[in-house]
Nucleic acid binder design. Structure first.
Length: 624
RNA sequence: GCCCUUGUAGCUCAGUCGGUUAGAGCACCUCCUUGGUAAGGAGGAGGUCACCGGUUCGAUUCCGGUCAAGGGCUCCA
C-alpha cells in the first residue's frame, strides 16, 4: 500500500478505531487527509485529548453553519469558534432564531452527519478567496480575509458549504457525534456595540453520548444550585424593584451567615497584624479629583450629590480614605508596614444589562485592605498576603485556584524601574509559595502590576475573588511619605488587596458551592429542636437554653405538627442538626440526633450531643 | 446601554381567540388532631393580572411606552 496522507500513515502505525481526529506534523496541527511530506514527525491527536475535543467542537460548529445555510439561505455567516464548554456560531439574519429553529437545525445537522460528507481543505490566494466569498455574498468573510496578514488562506468545504478557516477539522461530517444546541443570544459583530447585532447560537459537543449526558446533568445541577433560587427558597436575601436593581437586602438568615463570615474575617485580620478601619460612604468630590477617580473611574461612579453648594461623591473605592488616615501624621520607616483593613461598602454604576443576582451588583462590601510599605518590604508583604489568602479560602472549602499575574500595560504611571521591581516581587512571591500562575501580559492596572486569583468551586467553575494590586500612583498623587533611616522623606508603596473580593459575590459563590447546605459554623440555624408532641415543649425549651448558653444557634419548632412534617421542613431548610425530643428523651434527659446529611444517628445524652456539635463548629478553625 | 425572551397570589404555574365573582398546588391564618424520623384533616384569608398611556361600549387579554427580571454582547469585585 502506497502511503500518501497522514491518515494512512497513522492507520498503518496503529489504529485506534476512529479515535484519531487530526494529527500534528512537527508539532503543527493538521487534517488527517493532509498529503504526507518526508522528514515529518507525525503524532495523532485523539478525540479524547483537549485538542481533539476542540477540533470536534469546531467541526460541529461548522456543521451547524452548514445546516443553517441550507435551512435559511439568506443568512450570512461570520465566525464560529470552539469555546471552553462547547462552541458557538454568529449569523447575520433578519430575526433571532427560536427554540423551534434550533430543533430544526439540530435535525438537519444529524442528517448531514449521517451523509458522511468529506470535509476538504483548500488553500488559495487572498484575492481568489475574496472573489469566491464575494460571489456568495459572504461580506463578513471578505472583511476578515482582507485583515489577515498571510498571503494565502485556507478554506474548508463540506458539500456545498464553504467556510474560511485555519483548521484543522474532522475528515468527514460523520465524525460529529454527540452534540446539542443550547441557546441563542444577540452578540455584536466583533464584540463591539457600535457594530451590528448578530444572532448567536450556542451548542456543545462531546466524543460520546455519555459525556454529553454528563455535561447536560451538570447544567441541571448548576440550575439547582443557582444562588438566586436558593437565596429565595432559604430566605437569605432579596433584590426588589422598589429598592433598585443591583442593591441587596440581606434577610435575617443571610445576615447571620454574613456575620459569621465577618467575625471570622476580623479575627483573622487582627491575628495577622492588621488594624481595622471604618470610613464614610461619601466624601467631597475634591478628594476624588486628587485620587484621579474623577478622571479614570468616572464611568463607574454615580453623579455627585450637592449639599450646601458643595459636591459630595458616593464612594466607589475605599483607598482615598485609608490614605487620608495615613496622612494624619508623620510616619517613620520603623512604622512600616502599616496594614489597614476595612469591610468597606462601595457603590459602582454598572450597566443594567450586566447585573446578576449577588454576583454583579451596584452596592457591595469589599473585604478591603491597604498596606503601606517600603520597597524592600514589598516581596515579604506579598508572600504573607498569599499565605493569608490560601488560609482564608481553604476555610470556605476552596483549595483549587487559577492564578494570573498581570504585567505593565501600554498606558502606565510610575517609573519602569519600579514596575520592574514590583513585577519581580510578585513573581518571586508566587514562586516561593510554589503557586502555579499564568502571565497576563499588559493586563495590569495603569497604576501597578497585580495578582488575581480565581477560585474553583465544586462544579469546577472558576470565580475571580482575590486581587492583590501594587500601586505607585496614589502615593504620588497624595504625596505620601515616610521618614527614612537617612532622615529624609521617601515614598511608600501601597498594596490594595481584597481576599474574598466582595461579601455579596463571595456569599453568592458560597451558596452555589455548598448548594445552600452551609457547613455547621456558617449555618444560620445550627440546631433545630423538634418536640414530638406539645408535652415536650418545656423540655425542648430547656434544651434550647443549654445550647444557646454554649453559643450554638438554636431554634425550637413547637408547632402542633407531626414529627415527619417538622423534619421534612428542617431538612428542606438544610438545618445541619435536628434534635428530636419525645417522652423517652425528656425522661432520660437525652436527644435523638438527626443529621442533615446522614439522617437519624440515634439517641444520646444531651451533654454528649452538645459536645458533638461544639466540636464540629470548632473544626473549621483547625483547618488552618 | 444594546439584541432577544419574560412579567397573573409570598413561591411554582394554569387561564382569558376582548365580555359579570381570574384558578390550582405549596406557603400563610383558624379549628380538629398529640402524632417517633421527608407532607394528618377541615375551613379561611390572600391578586389594580408589573406600571403608564392608547384603541374599544368594555382591556389582565390588542397596540405603544416605562420599569424589572432572564439569556447574551461589553465590562468588572
Amino acid at each position: 500500500m502506497k502511503v500518501t496522507t497522514i491518515k494512512e500513515c497513522l492507520d498503518e502505525k496503529d489504529s485506534q478505531g476512529g479515535e484519531i481526529v487530526a494529527a500534528k506534523v512537527n508539532g503543527r496541527p493538521v487534517d488527517l487527509n493532509t498529503p504526507l511530506t518526508k522528514d515529518s514527525k507525525i503524532e495523532g491527536i485523539s478525540i479524547h485529548s483537549p485538542e481533539g475535543l476542540e477540533i470536534l467542537r469546531h467541526s460541529t460548529s461548522h456543521l451547524m453553519a452548514q445546516a443553517v445555510k441550507e435551512l435559511y439561505p439568506e443568512v450570512r455567516i461570520t465566525i464560529g469558534p470552539s469555546i471552553a464548554e462547547g462552541f458557538y456560531y454568529d449569523f447575520d439574519y433578519s430575526r433571532p432564531f427560536t427554540p423551534e429553529d434550533l430543533a430544526k437545525i439540530e435535525e438537519k445537522m444529524r442528517a448531514l452527519a449521517k451523509e458522511d460528507i468529506p470535509i476538504i481543505r483548500r488553500e488559495m490566494s487572498k484575492g481568489d478567496a475574496i472573489k469566491l466569498f464575494d460571489k456568495m455574498g459572504e461580506t463578513y468573510k471578505t472583511e476578515i480575509i482582507r485583515e489577515l496578514p498571510e498571503e494565502a488562506v485556507s478554506l474548508y468545504q463540506q458539500g456545498n458549504f464553504t467556510d474560511l478557516c485555519r483548521g484543522p477539522h474532522l475528515p468527514s461530517t460523520a465524525g460529529v457525534r454527540s452534540f446539542k444546541l443550547l441557546s441563542t443570544a444577540g452578540a455584536y459583530w466583533r464584540g463591539d456595540e457600535k457594530n451590528k447585532m448578530l444572532q448567536r447560537i450556542y451548542g456543545t459537543a462531546f466524543p460520546t453520548e455519555a459525556e454529553l449526558d454528563n455535561y447536560l446533568n451538570k447544567l441541571e445541577e448548576i440550575k439547582k444550585r443557582d444562588h438566586r433560587k436558593l437565596g429565595r427558597e432559604l430566605d437569605l436575601f432579596s433584590i426588589q424593584d422598589e429598592i433598585g436593581a443591583g442593591l441587596i437586602l440581606w434577610h435575617p438568615k443571610g445576615a447571620l451567615i454574613r456575620k459569621s463570615i465577618e467575625d471570622f474575617w476580623r479575627e483573622e485580620h487582627l491575628r495577622h497584624d492588621y488594624d481595622l478601619l471604618y470610613t464614610p460612604h461619601v466624601a467631597r468630590l475634591d478628594l476624588w479629583k486628587t485620587s484621579g477617580h474623577t478622571e479614570f473611574y468616572q464611568a463607574n461612579m454615580y453623579s455627585p450629590i450637592e449639599v450646601e453648594g458643595q459636591d459630595f461623591q458616593l464612594k466607589p473605592m475605599n483607598c482615598p480614605f485609608h490614605i487620608m488616615i495615613y496622612k494624619t501624621k508623620i510616619h517613620s520607616y520603623r512604622d512600616l508596614p502599616i496594614r489597614w483593613a476595612e469591610l468597606g461598602t462601595v457603590y459602582r454604576y454598572e450597566r443594567s444589562g450586566v447585573l446578576h443576582g449577588l454576583l454583579r451588583v451596584r452596592g457591595f462590601t469589599q473585604d478591603d485592605a491597604h498596606i503601606f510599605c517600603r520597597p524592600d518590604q514589598l516581596e515579604k508583604e506579598i508572600t504573607s498576603i498569599l499565605d493569608f489568602t490560601v488560609d482564608i479560602l481553604k476555610t470556605f472549602g476552596f483549595d483549587r485556584y487559577d492564578i494570573y499575574l498581570s504585567t505593565r500595560p501600554e498606558k502606565f504611571v510610575g517609573s519602569m524601574e519600579n514596575w520592574e521591581k514590583a513585577t519581580t516581587a510578585l513573581c518571586k512571591a508566587l514562586e516561593m509559595k510554589g503557586l502555579a500562575y499564568q502571565i497576563d501580559p499588559g493586563e495590569g492596572v495603569f497604576y501597578g502590576p497585580k495578582i488575581d486569583i480565581k477560585i474553583k468551586d465544586v462544579l469546577d467553575r472558576a470565580w475571580q475573588c482575590t486581587t492583590i494590586q501594587v500601586d505607585f500612583n496614589l502615593p504620588e498623587r497624595f504625596s505620601l511619605s515616610y521618614v527614612g533611616e537617612d532622615g529624609v522623606p521617601h515614598q511608600p508603596i501601597m498594596i490594595h488587596r481584597a481576599l474574598m473580593g466582595s461579601l455579596e459575590r463571595f456569599f453568592g459563590i458560597l451558596v452555589e458551592h455548598y448548594a445552600g447546605a452551609f457547613p455547621l459554623w456558617l449555618s444560620p440555624v445550627q440546631v433545630r429542636v423538634l418536640p414530638i408532641t406539645e408535652k415536650q415543649n418545656e423540655y425542648a425549651g430547656e434544651v434550647k437554653t443549654l445550647l444557646s448558653r454554649e453559643g450554638i444557634r438554636v431554634k425550637v419548632d413547637s408547632r402542633s405538627e407531626k414529627i415527619g412534617y417538622k423534619i421534612r421542613e428542617a431538612q428542606m431548610e438544610k438545618v445541619p442538626y435536628m434534635f428530636v425530643v419525645g417522652g423517652r428523651e425528656a425522661e432520660s434527659r437525652s436527644v435523638s440526633v438527626r443529621m442533615r446529611k446522614d439522617g437519624d444517628i440515634g439517641t444520646m445524652p444531651l451533654a454528649s450531643a452538645i459536645e458533638k456539635v461544639k466540636k464540629e463548629i470548632l473544626i473549621y478553625q483547625s483547618t488552618k
